[in-house]
Simulated scan of single mutants.
Amino acid sequence: MFIDNREVPSAGFCEHLEALSDDTGLLQHARFHLPNRDHGYCTDDNSRAAIVLLRLSHLRKLARSERAMLRNCLAFLDHALEETTGRFRNFMAYDRAWCDTTWFADPHGRAVWALGETIAHASGDAERYWAQNLLERVVQELANETAPRLWAFSLFGLEAALVVQPDWQAGLAARQALQMRLRQRWADAATKEWPWFEDTLAYDNARLCEAALLAGGDLAAAGLTALGALWDWQQEDGVFMPVGHDSFGRERSLPKRWDQQPLEAAAMLDACIRAHSVTGDDKWVHRARASLDWFHGTNALGLPLADPATGLCHDGLHPDRVNANAGAESTVSYMWARISAAYFAKGMAF
């Protein structure tokens, strides 16, 4: 059975997320289980957390403290948008000073994703109008960006927004342009021996497959091929083995096993659920289950990373141990996977 009672988010599900948050937003890192203020905040994590809380609000009513976290994450994104460039900054120090030395494409895409989800899922008109306003200020330039993960994240946000406003012309044009770019990327990179969108594996890999599957048509077929290859590269005897951090940047090479990151498991779960919705093939349900079980101890070390009661998740697997820290990206990734599983169990789309 795909779902058991661990996938029903409890009243204490956001406990660790709250521990990592303050009135600025979500802090990036933890030292063991305590917030590590040395590294401040980032747009990446506040975007992810906003999406998680918005989706959680459709499973159960958010507590007052959870609603406050969501508002703070959205306010962080509002402040992150740089007026002169129309791009989202990423890194903020604990003293609230922006400290980016270069622009990062992927956080920009994640912020677009969070804005689209806000348009689709926010409980109040004010939040939806705010998100639409910010999205209108960045949507025209999305097709000019060159990072595939920015394309994928932006496509998710555009799709969410277009569900509730299907005649939004700027959104429709941006979606079509980004799908064309992803299609061309597949044509340029994929071969029979290397059925993938890029010359290397990196992080959040399955999001590229998910974006292709969401597009439908020939791009969905490419996404299904790529996801099948990615699954084969990330499993041993049906046990999920996420692409290891040591793999990043190795051209057209099979992934190394270490270190394994929670972000990959959450992305793989979502992509497998999407593949099941496209194909109806139950093998994708089993693969989604394996991705979720990785958090709970069905992994290379046989050790759990996450606490189902509090949402806490450790920062990955090393060859000999679980990482002792439990920061924002890992915790949000676990919460994301749990919420996606609950949506699937209830027949809800995400």
Score class of each variant (00 low, 15 high):
D307F: 00
H121C: 12
E159D: 08
V322S: 02
W196M: 00
A342S: 12
R183A: 14
L77R: 01
M69W: 12
L26H: 02
A222W: 00
Q169H: 08
N299E: 00
D237G: 02
V243A: 13
W231V: 04
N323K: 10
A326R: 03
T24L: 12
A147D: 15
D204A: 15
P304G: 03
L227V: 05
G238W: 01
K192M: 05
V239I: 15
N133L: 02
P35Y: 14
H286N: 11
R6E: 04
D281E: 14
P308G: 11
T84H: 14
N36L: 12
A341F: 06
M348F: 12
Q179L: 02
F248H: 12
G116Y: 08
E251H: 06
A120N: 10
C73V: 13
S291Y: 02
D281S: 14
A306D: 04
H108S: 09
T24Q: 05
G25D: 11
V52Y: 01
A211E: 07
M180D: 09
R181E: 07
N46A: 14
D270C: 03
A189N: 15
S154A: 11
F240R: 10
H108L: 11
R338A: 10
S247G: 02
L312P: 02
W336V: 00
W231I: 05
G297R: 14
R287N: 03
D100W: 05
D95L: 07
A288T: 05
A105C: 11
Q261H: 10
W294E: 01
R128W: 08
R67M: 05
A345L: 04
A221L: 14
M335V: 00
A80Q: 06
C99S: 10
